[in-house]
Design a protein around this nucleic acid. Structure first.
Lengths: 159, 159
DNA sequence: CGACGATATATGACGCGTCATGTAATCGGT
DNA sequence: ACCGATTACATGACGCGTCATATATCGTCG
Protein backbone atom coordinates (compact mmCIF):
# COMPACT_ATOMS: atom_id res chain seq x y z
CA UNK A 1 0.00 0.00 0.00
CA UNK A 2 2.96 2.25 -0.02
CA UNK A 3 1.97 3.56 -3.41
CA UNK A 4 1.57 7.26 -3.71
CA UNK A 5 -0.08 7.98 -0.42
CA UNK A 6 0.07 11.62 -1.26
CA UNK A 7 -3.51 12.40 -0.53
CA UNK A 8 -3.88 12.25 -4.19
CA UNK A 9 -3.51 8.71 -3.05
CA UNK A 10 -5.98 6.39 -4.53
CA UNK A 11 -7.88 9.03 -6.46
CA UNK A 12 -7.60 8.87 -10.19
CA UNK A 13 -6.84 12.02 -12.18
CA UNK A 14 -10.42 13.06 -12.94
CA UNK A 15 -11.49 12.56 -9.39
CA UNK A 16 -8.53 14.54 -8.17
CA UNK A 17 -9.11 17.40 -10.59
CA UNK A 18 -12.73 17.63 -9.58
CA UNK A 19 -12.04 17.33 -5.88
CA UNK A 20 -9.23 19.80 -5.70
CA UNK A 21 -11.00 22.15 -8.01
CA UNK A 22 -14.05 22.14 -5.82
CA UNK A 23 -12.22 22.40 -2.55
CA UNK A 24 -9.84 25.11 -3.70
CA UNK A 25 -11.94 27.19 -6.02
CA UNK A 26 -15.08 27.52 -3.98
CA UNK A 27 -13.45 29.36 -1.10
CA UNK A 28 -11.75 31.71 -3.54
CA UNK A 29 -15.04 32.48 -5.21
CA UNK A 30 -16.74 32.99 -1.89
CA UNK A 31 -14.03 35.28 -0.74
CA UNK A 32 -14.10 37.38 -3.85
CA UNK A 33 -17.82 37.91 -3.59
CA UNK A 34 -17.57 38.62 0.10
CA UNK A 35 -15.03 41.29 -0.57
CA UNK A 36 -17.20 42.93 -3.18
CA UNK A 37 -20.22 42.79 -0.91
CA UNK A 38 -18.33 44.27 2.00
CA UNK A 39 -16.79 46.96 -0.14
CA UNK A 40 -20.09 48.28 -1.38
CA UNK A 41 -22.39 47.73 1.57
CA UNK A 42 -20.43 46.95 4.69
CA UNK A 43 -22.17 43.59 4.91
CA UNK A 44 -20.24 40.37 5.23
CA UNK A 45 -21.03 37.23 3.32
CA UNK A 46 -22.51 35.71 6.43
CA UNK A 47 -24.91 38.56 7.02
CA UNK A 48 -26.46 37.97 3.67
CA UNK A 49 -28.47 34.77 4.14
CA UNK A 50 -29.77 36.08 7.44
CA UNK A 51 -30.97 39.28 5.86
CA UNK A 52 -32.44 37.51 2.85
CA UNK A 53 -34.43 35.20 5.04
CA UNK A 54 -35.70 37.88 7.36
CA UNK A 55 -36.59 40.10 4.46
CA UNK A 56 -38.52 37.36 2.73
CA UNK A 57 -40.60 36.86 5.82
CA UNK A 58 -41.61 40.47 5.76
CA UNK A 59 -43.16 41.50 9.03
CA UNK A 60 -43.73 38.05 10.39
CA UNK A 61 -41.23 37.70 13.22
CA UNK A 62 -38.87 34.78 13.20
CA UNK A 63 -37.64 32.86 16.17
CA UNK A 64 -34.00 32.01 16.31
CA UNK A 65 -34.34 28.26 15.90
CA UNK A 66 -36.61 28.63 12.94
CA UNK A 67 -34.20 31.02 11.33
CA UNK A 68 -31.35 28.60 11.87
CA UNK A 69 -33.37 25.88 10.15
CA UNK A 70 -34.27 28.09 7.24
CA UNK A 71 -30.68 29.06 6.65
CA UNK A 72 -29.30 25.66 7.47
CA UNK A 73 -26.96 26.81 10.19
CA UNK A 74 -26.18 25.41 13.57
CA UNK A 75 -28.01 27.18 16.30
CA UNK A 76 -24.91 28.37 18.08
CA UNK A 77 -23.42 29.73 14.93
CA UNK A 78 -26.54 31.74 14.36
CA UNK A 79 -26.53 32.96 17.93
CA UNK A 80 -22.99 34.20 17.60
CA UNK A 81 -23.71 35.83 14.31
CA UNK A 82 -26.89 37.49 15.50
CA UNK A 83 -24.90 38.94 18.37
CA UNK A 84 -22.52 40.50 15.90
CA UNK A 85 -25.32 41.74 13.68
CA UNK A 86 -27.19 43.16 16.62
CA UNK A 87 -24.10 45.05 17.68
CA UNK A 88 -24.00 46.59 14.25
CA UNK A 89 -27.65 47.53 14.38
CA UNK A 90 -28.81 45.28 11.55
CA UNK A 91 -31.22 43.19 13.58
CA UNK A 92 -32.83 43.14 16.99
CA UNK A 93 -33.75 40.28 19.25
CA UNK A 94 -36.68 40.50 21.60
CA UNK A 95 -38.16 37.98 23.95
CA UNK A 96 -41.36 36.28 23.01
CA UNK A 97 -44.21 37.41 25.27
CA UNK A 98 -45.74 33.98 25.74
CA UNK A 99 -42.58 31.91 25.88
CA UNK A 100 -39.75 33.77 27.46
CA UNK A 101 -37.13 31.42 26.15
CA UNK A 102 -37.52 32.23 22.52
CA UNK A 103 -35.82 35.15 20.87
CA UNK A 104 -37.69 36.77 18.04
CA UNK A 105 -35.44 38.23 15.45
CA UNK A 106 -36.44 41.42 13.69
CA UNK A 107 -34.85 43.33 10.90
CA UNK A 108 -34.20 46.91 11.95
CA UNK A 109 -35.04 49.68 9.53
CA UNK A 110 -31.40 50.18 8.93
CA UNK A 111 -30.87 46.47 8.39
CA UNK A 112 -33.60 46.40 5.80
CA UNK A 113 -32.27 49.48 4.08
CA UNK A 114 -28.71 48.23 3.96
CA UNK A 115 -29.85 44.90 2.63
CA UNK A 116 -32.07 46.34 -0.08
CA UNK A 117 -29.26 48.58 -1.08
CA UNK A 118 -26.81 45.70 -1.30
CA UNK A 119 -28.97 43.11 -3.01
CA UNK A 120 -28.74 44.49 -6.51
CA UNK A 121 -25.01 44.69 -6.56
CA UNK A 122 -24.62 41.31 -4.99
CA UNK A 123 -26.78 39.61 -7.55
CA UNK A 124 -24.86 41.34 -10.25
CA UNK A 125 -21.61 40.10 -8.77
CA UNK A 126 -22.88 36.54 -8.59
CA UNK A 127 -23.82 36.76 -12.21
CA UNK A 128 -20.56 38.26 -13.24
CA UNK A 129 -18.23 35.91 -11.40
CA UNK A 130 -20.33 32.81 -11.49
CA UNK A 131 -23.48 32.51 -13.53
CA UNK A 132 -22.41 34.34 -16.64
CA UNK A 133 -19.16 32.46 -16.79
CA UNK A 134 -20.87 29.10 -17.14
CA UNK A 135 -23.20 27.69 -19.73
CA UNK A 136 -26.75 26.70 -18.88
CA UNK A 137 -25.96 23.00 -19.13
CA UNK A 138 -23.05 23.57 -16.79
CA UNK A 139 -25.30 25.32 -14.31
CA UNK A 140 -27.77 22.48 -14.50
CA UNK A 141 -25.04 19.91 -14.05
CA UNK A 142 -23.61 21.80 -11.12
CA UNK A 143 -26.97 22.12 -9.43
CA UNK A 144 -27.53 18.41 -9.77
CA UNK A 145 -24.08 17.53 -8.58
CA UNK A 146 -24.53 19.63 -5.47
CA UNK A 147 -27.91 18.16 -4.78
CA UNK A 148 -26.50 14.68 -5.12
CA UNK A 149 -23.63 15.42 -2.80
CA UNK A 150 -25.93 16.92 -0.24
CA UNK A 151 -28.29 13.97 -0.34
CA UNK A 152 -25.39 11.72 0.48
CA UNK A 153 -24.16 13.92 3.27
CA UNK A 154 -27.48 13.98 5.04
CA UNK A 155 -28.68 10.43 4.94
CA UNK A 156 -32.47 10.43 5.03
CA UNK A 157 -33.66 10.07 8.59
CA UNK A 158 -33.45 6.48 9.78
CA UNK A 159 -30.92 5.54 7.19
CA UNK B 1 -36.62 48.32 -9.42
CA UNK B 2 -38.38 47.14 -6.33
CA UNK B 3 -38.76 43.69 -7.77
CA UNK B 4 -37.64 40.75 -5.70
CA UNK B 5 -34.41 42.09 -4.37
CA UNK B 6 -34.12 39.03 -2.24
CA UNK B 7 -30.62 38.12 -3.12
CA UNK B 8 -32.21 35.58 -5.26
CA UNK B 9 -32.72 38.88 -6.97
CA UNK B 10 -32.02 38.84 -10.59
CA UNK B 11 -30.84 35.25 -10.69
CA UNK B 12 -33.03 32.84 -12.55
CA UNK B 13 -33.93 29.49 -11.00
CA UNK B 14 -31.13 27.40 -12.47
CA UNK B 15 -28.55 29.96 -11.56
CA UNK B 16 -29.89 30.15 -8.06
CA UNK B 17 -29.98 26.40 -7.60
CA UNK B 18 -26.43 26.08 -8.79
CA UNK B 19 -25.14 29.02 -6.78
CA UNK B 20 -26.80 28.13 -3.53
CA UNK B 21 -25.97 24.49 -3.98
CA UNK B 22 -22.33 25.30 -4.44
CA UNK B 23 -22.11 27.83 -1.66
CA UNK B 24 -24.03 25.74 0.85
CA UNK B 25 -22.97 22.20 0.04
CA UNK B 26 -19.26 22.68 -0.31
CA UNK B 27 -18.70 23.79 3.28
CA UNK B 28 -20.80 20.89 4.52
CA UNK B 29 -18.76 18.45 2.52
CA UNK B 30 -15.52 20.00 3.66
CA UNK B 31 -16.64 19.86 7.25
CA UNK B 32 -17.69 16.25 7.08
CA UNK B 33 -14.35 15.21 5.66
CA UNK B 34 -12.49 17.34 8.16
CA UNK B 35 -14.32 15.64 10.98
CA UNK B 36 -13.45 12.22 9.67
CA UNK B 37 -9.82 13.18 9.16
CA UNK B 38 -9.57 14.64 12.64
CA UNK B 39 -11.27 11.67 14.20
CA UNK B 40 -8.87 9.16 12.79
CA UNK B 41 -5.60 11.03 12.71
CA UNK B 42 -5.81 14.19 14.77
CA UNK B 43 -5.06 16.21 11.66
CA UNK B 44 -7.26 19.07 10.59
CA UNK B 45 -8.32 19.71 7.03
CA UNK B 46 -5.87 22.58 6.80
CA UNK B 47 -2.93 20.48 7.84
CA UNK B 48 -3.49 18.19 4.94
CA UNK B 49 -2.35 20.23 1.95
CA UNK B 50 0.72 21.34 3.85
CA UNK B 51 1.67 17.79 4.64
CA UNK B 52 0.93 16.55 1.13
CA UNK B 53 3.12 19.18 -0.38
CA UNK B 54 6.01 18.68 1.99
CA UNK B 55 5.78 14.94 1.60
CA UNK B 56 5.84 15.16 -2.17
CA UNK B 57 9.01 17.18 -2.01
CA UNK B 58 10.67 14.44 -0.07
CA UNK B 59 13.88 15.65 1.52
CA UNK B 60 14.22 18.80 -0.50
CA UNK B 61 13.50 21.58 1.98
CA UNK B 62 10.85 24.12 1.15
CA UNK B 63 10.89 27.78 1.95
CA UNK B 64 7.76 29.30 3.32
CA UNK B 65 6.91 31.48 0.33
CA UNK B 66 7.35 28.63 -2.08
CA UNK B 67 5.12 26.45 0.02
CA UNK B 68 2.45 29.12 0.08
CA UNK B 69 2.59 29.32 -3.71
CA UNK B 70 2.39 25.57 -4.12
CA UNK B 71 -0.64 25.35 -1.90
CA UNK B 72 -2.17 28.55 -3.14
CA UNK B 73 -2.43 30.21 0.25
CA UNK B 74 -1.68 33.69 1.39
CA UNK B 75 1.65 33.98 3.06
CA UNK B 76 0.27 35.11 6.38
CA UNK B 77 -2.24 32.32 6.49
CA UNK B 78 0.53 29.85 5.99
CA UNK B 79 2.65 31.50 8.63
CA UNK B 80 -0.15 31.25 11.17
CA UNK B 81 -0.84 27.69 10.24
CA UNK B 82 2.79 26.65 10.35
CA UNK B 83 2.95 28.11 13.84
CA UNK B 84 0.09 25.87 14.90
CA UNK B 85 1.59 22.85 13.19
CA UNK B 86 4.97 23.51 14.70
CA UNK B 87 3.43 23.68 18.14
CA UNK B 88 1.96 20.26 17.51
CA UNK B 89 5.27 18.85 16.35
CA UNK B 90 4.25 18.15 12.76
CA UNK B 91 6.76 20.45 11.10
CA UNK B 92 9.82 22.49 11.95
CA UNK B 93 11.03 25.80 10.65
CA UNK B 94 14.70 26.65 10.48
CA UNK B 95 16.51 29.65 9.13
CA UNK B 96 18.31 29.41 5.83
CA UNK B 97 22.06 29.60 6.29
CA UNK B 98 22.70 31.86 3.31
CA UNK B 99 19.65 34.11 3.53
CA UNK B 100 18.62 34.65 7.07
CA UNK B 101 15.19 35.89 6.16
CA UNK B 102 13.87 32.67 4.74
CA UNK B 103 12.36 29.93 6.83
CA UNK B 104 12.83 26.43 5.59
CA UNK B 105 10.00 24.15 6.44
CA UNK B 106 10.68 20.52 7.24
CA UNK B 107 8.41 17.65 7.98
CA UNK B 108 9.26 16.08 11.32
CA UNK B 109 9.40 12.33 11.59
CA UNK B 110 6.19 12.42 13.51
CA UNK B 111 4.61 14.67 10.93
CA UNK B 112 5.52 12.29 8.18
CA UNK B 113 4.28 9.31 10.13
CA UNK B 114 0.97 10.90 11.02
CA UNK B 115 0.44 11.96 7.47
CA UNK B 116 1.24 8.58 5.95
CA UNK B 117 -1.05 7.03 8.44
CA UNK B 118 -3.88 9.39 7.59
CA UNK B 119 -3.60 9.47 3.83
CA UNK B 120 -5.25 6.15 3.13
CA UNK B 121 -8.31 6.86 5.16
CA UNK B 122 -8.64 10.33 3.83
CA UNK B 123 -8.57 9.21 0.23
CA UNK B 124 -11.13 6.61 1.05
CA UNK B 125 -13.36 9.23 2.61
CA UNK B 126 -13.06 11.49 -0.39
CA UNK B 127 -14.08 8.59 -2.58
CA UNK B 128 -16.94 7.64 -0.39
CA UNK B 129 -18.49 11.04 0.11
CA UNK B 130 -17.54 12.62 -3.15
CA UNK B 131 -16.05 10.67 -6.00
CA UNK B 132 -18.10 7.51 -5.76
CA UNK B 133 -21.32 9.45 -5.48
CA UNK B 134 -20.86 11.09 -8.86
CA UNK B 135 -20.60 9.69 -12.35
CA UNK B 136 -17.47 10.11 -14.41
CA UNK B 137 -19.13 12.65 -16.70
CA UNK B 138 -20.19 14.58 -13.62
CA UNK B 139 -16.66 14.57 -12.31
CA UNK B 140 -15.39 15.78 -15.63
CA UNK B 141 -18.01 18.49 -15.81
CA UNK B 142 -17.24 19.58 -12.27
CA UNK B 143 -13.53 19.74 -12.93
CA UNK B 144 -14.12 21.89 -15.96
CA UNK B 145 -16.56 24.14 -14.19
CA UNK B 146 -14.10 24.76 -11.40
CA UNK B 147 -11.28 25.43 -13.80
CA UNK B 148 -13.47 27.91 -15.66
CA UNK B 149 -14.46 29.69 -12.49
CA UNK B 150 -10.90 29.90 -11.34
CA UNK B 151 -9.71 31.28 -14.65
CA UNK B 152 -12.21 34.06 -14.30
CA UNK B 153 -11.27 34.78 -10.73
CA UNK B 154 -7.61 35.19 -11.49
CA UNK B 155 -7.51 37.27 -14.63
CA UNK B 156 -4.29 36.53 -16.48
CA UNK B 157 -1.66 39.04 -15.45
CA UNK B 158 -2.10 42.34 -17.25
CA UNK B 159 -5.75 41.74 -17.92
C1' DC C 1 -46.99 23.47 44.32
C1' DG C 2 -42.30 21.38 43.40
C1' DA C 3 -38.93 18.60 41.35
C1' DC C 4 -37.34 17.17 36.84
C1' DG C 5 -36.59 16.64 32.15
C1' DA C 6 -36.89 18.99 27.92
C1' DT C 7 -36.48 23.19 25.18
C1' DA C 8 -34.55 27.79 23.51
C1' DT C 9 -30.86 30.36 23.48
C1' DA C 10 -26.33 32.27 25.09
C1' DT C 11 -21.53 31.94 26.12
C1' DG C 12 -16.54 30.61 26.39
C1' DA C 13 -12.70 28.61 24.47
C1' DC C 14 -10.34 27.55 20.57
C1' DG C 15 -8.78 26.85 15.73
C1' DC C 16 -9.15 29.13 11.24
C1' DG C 17 -8.44 33.02 7.87
C1' DT C 18 -7.87 37.99 6.62
C1' DC C 19 -6.05 42.46 6.85
C1' DA C 20 -2.85 45.64 8.42
C1' DT C 21 1.38 46.20 10.32
C1' DG C 22 5.94 45.08 12.33
C1' DT C 23 10.76 43.46 12.06
C1' DA C 24 14.78 41.86 10.29
C1' DA C 25 17.72 40.76 6.48
C1' DT C 26 19.25 41.56 1.78
C1' DC C 27 19.96 44.22 -2.46
C1' DG C 28 21.31 48.11 -5.34
C1' DG C 29 22.97 52.12 -6.32
C1' DT C 30 26.06 55.76 -5.17
C1' DA D 1 30.51 51.66 3.39
C1' DC D 2 25.83 53.66 3.55
C1' DC D 3 20.99 54.32 2.85
C1' DG D 4 16.61 53.50 0.92
C1' DA D 5 13.87 49.99 -1.21
C1' DT D 6 12.55 45.48 -1.34
C1' DT D 7 11.95 40.81 0.31
C1' DA D 8 10.73 37.18 3.71
C1' DC D 9 8.40 36.23 7.36
C1' DA D 10 5.88 37.05 11.91
C1' DT D 11 2.39 39.06 14.67
C1' DG D 12 -1.88 41.24 16.50
C1' DA D 13 -6.51 42.18 16.11
C1' DC D 14 -10.68 40.75 14.66
C1' DG D 15 -14.60 38.23 12.50
C1' DC D 16 -16.07 33.45 11.57
C1' DG D 17 -17.50 28.66 12.93
C1' DT D 18 -17.44 24.57 16.07
C1' DC D 19 -17.83 22.14 20.23
C1' DA D 20 -18.92 21.87 24.86
C1' DT D 21 -21.34 23.89 28.38
C1' DA D 22 -24.24 27.23 30.91
C1' DT D 23 -28.69 29.51 31.90
C1' DA D 24 -33.25 30.33 31.93
C1' DT D 25 -37.84 28.94 30.95
C1' DC D 26 -41.52 25.65 30.16
C1' DG D 27 -44.26 21.29 30.72
C1' DT D 28 -45.56 17.67 33.29
C1' DC D 29 -46.14 14.37 36.60
C1' DG D 30 -46.83 13.38 41.28
Amino acid sequence: MADEATGAGSLDPVELRAWRGLIETTPLLRRRLDQLLTADSGLTGSDYPVLVTLHERGDRPCRSTELADLIGWEQSRLSHHLARMERRGLIRRCRHHADNRVAEVHLTDEGRAVFLNAAQGHSRAVREHFADVLTVPQLEALAEIMETLQRHLAPPVTD
